[in-house]
């Protein structure tokens, strides 16, 4: 019995959620009364020497210098074969989404992904995850010996809670064949430089699916104009081309923290929340009182945005004269 945490490191930089997952792994291991270890691919685990871990494993191979699902799966499968962990934890990053289901499948196991909490009940693991874009939660009970596989949602655990101690530094050279890596990746790139930098905006009026039609966009644009705020949107609005992609807030768009963030007709799926929950004040306007956006909102209005927003625009105009 042990917990193995897979840390993500790209180009010499730790993915921030790696620390959150490491803290989760240490806490779960303590509840189970077992040890935790960490493993790093494509980089060194040496920085983990002062963490409370049984082992910090560096998996070294020239075929792991660049990420591939085939390479990572083969290498980690060998690590798991040797370490025999009862639980393998990943940060729920885009990269993890690309290979962790493959790895779990190769081990004949299921991956419980995007988990917000792991509890130990009567010696068994119970994992909490969101259903229906955060509108409901579910407890998953894991049966049998394991290894069980789970990825941890960004922000679910505190990265600064990683416990200090000492770890034995171990190097693991996997057996990998060049021919086993079937995909050929080109250099990552960014689309043309962003013309709009929402990160410095004081106020942002953001619109979601609740707006229903492109023809309705002026309803929220009028509010943004009255406030002197920047316009932004959740992903589906930009997917539809109703606002340019560069105004998208969320995991695949920009991360913002304005003084006030107006979430209008946005239900609050986690992909959106991660991009705006650092805002100083959040105002949510939504017709569904159970929408997850109200979980992060400071001020909430349950109502029809087509009535509330024009009233708000009017009230703002009055003040501003």
């Amino acid at each position: 019995m042990s917990v193995l945490v897979v840390m993500e490191r790209t180009g010499g930089r730790w993915h921030r959620t790696s620390w959150e997952t490491l803290a989760a792994g240490q806490q779960i291991a303590a509840s189970l009364g077992v040890g935790a270890s960490a493993v790093v691919l494509g980089g060194s685990a040496a920085e983990l020497a002062d963490k409370r871990l049984a082992k910090a494993i560096t998996v070294e191979h020239e075929l792991l210098n660049a990420y591939s699902a085939d390479g990572y799966t083969a290498a980690l499968s060998q690590v798991i074969e040797r370490e025999q962990p009862s639980l393998v934890l990943f940060p729920h990053t885009y990269q993890v989404r690309d290979y962790a289901p493959k790895l779990a499948t190769r081990r004949g196991r299921t991956l419980v992904s995007d988990v917000v909490q792991v509890r130990v009940e009567g010696g068994a693991l119970v994992m909490v995850r969101q259903l229906f874009q955060g509108r409901l939660n579910a407890d998953y009970r894991c049966a049998g010996e394991g290894p069980h596989f789970a990825s941890i949602q960004a922000g679910a655990y505190q990265g600064d809670a990683v416990a200090a101690g000492g770890a034995e530094l171990v190097s693991f050279p996997p057996t990998l064949e060049n021919s086993a890596i079937r995909t050929r990746a080109e250099e990552p790139f960014r689309e043309s430089a962003r013309a709009v930098d929402l990160s410095s905006a004081e106020m942002i009026v953001s619109v979601g699916r609740g707006i229903k039609e492109q023809e309705n966009m002026p309803v929220v644009e009028a509010l943004a104009q009255a406030l002197g705020a920047e316009m932004a949107a959740s992903r589906p609005i930009c997917d539809n081309g109703w606002l340019p992609m560069e105004r998208q807030v969320g995991s695949s768009g920009q991360t913002v923290s304005p003084k006030v963030y107006f979430a209008i007709g946005i239900s609050g799926a986690i992909q959106h929340l991660v991009g705006m929950k650092g805002s100083k004040t959040i105002v949510a306007i939504n017709k569904d009182a159970n929408a997850p956006i109200f979980d992060v909102a400071d001020y909430g209005i349950v109502g029809d945005l087509f009535e509330v927003v024009p009233a708000l625009t009017e009230a703002v105009r009055k003040i501003k004269g």
């Binding site: 299921t110 409901l136 998953y140 049966a143 997850p292 979980d295």
Partner: peptide
């Protein structure tokens, strides 16, 4: 199923 839903509830 290795992992089964035990309970569904409002967060």
């Amino acid at each position: 199923a290795e992992a089964t839903i035990e309970r569904v509830y409002a967060p």
